[in-house]
Design a protein around this nucleic acid. Structure first.
Lengths: 119, 119
DNA sequence: TTCTATGCCTAGTACCTCTACGCATAGGAG
DNA sequence: CTCCTATGCGTAGAGGTACTAGGCATAGAA
């Protein structure tokens, strides 16, 4: 089952920033990590990811750097910046607000604060 | 602080369907309910809401009906349909998937299942 | 040598949202 | 009685953007 386009759009940036917060990484591996984290439910195309990475770089949220190992393919590694961490925190804050609102109408339970509070 | 456009878009449909699941309602009041639920953080314009309500009607997720009380303004009341409830359930399922993915990278805690399980 | 997986990138379109506007009236303030 | 604000519904169309569909290149396996 495909995930709603808007939900994909809303989660893309925080998801990529979070993955980079785990450690520097490169495009192709990020794609696989997303699939892994979402248990296969989120299947981004590479054509979706690269423009996003470029935008994050343009915004100063990530640095990037080519690596050409003696053997194997050249890769472009991305790493999160301090500004990126701030942006991520803001995304988390907003997700908390919206998730709380949805939680209120769905069942009255606090839904996201646990995870967000530790982030 | 404004909520991210994509996050607003992703939450709009489930939020409106949820409000209508509480009982029939009309546009202007839905706007105020959204503001109330989100503690003032989500401030939709009426120009955003009406096209959404029309789309939900076109999709068969809501019925609508004019009411002209003996005193006061005429209002168009919307009520959720069975198809609408199914759509809402699907939205909840997808939110759970994405929220779990984000929860994993943010702290490893299950985040949404509590509320969703009771929905 | 051929095929698949890896690895990165972008032009352009097709789509969609939301701003900006229009219309109308109830009710209170003055 | 008049003005102003809140209530209440609606749409055209500009403007912006995501994503498809394509391109390029090479390592390694079969």
């Amino acid at each position: 089952m495909d995930i709603d386009k808007d939900l994909v759009a809303a989660s893309a940036t925080p998801l990529v920033l979070s993955i980079l917060a785990e450690g520097e990484n490169y495009g192709y591996a990020i794609l696989k990590r997303v699939r892994e984290i979402s248990l296969g439910e989120l299947q981004w195309s590479d054509g979706m990811l690269y423009p996003l990475l470029h935008r994050l770089h343009r915004l100063g949220y990530v640095t990037r750097e080519w690596r050409v190992p003696p053997e194997g393919r050249r890769r472009r590694y991305y790493a999160i910046t301090d500004d990126g961490r701030e942006a991520l925190a803001e995304h988390q804050r907003q997700w908390m607000i919206v998730a709380r609102a949805l939680g209120d109408v769905w069942g009255g339970t606090d839904v996201l604060p646990l995870a967000f509070g530790r982030a």
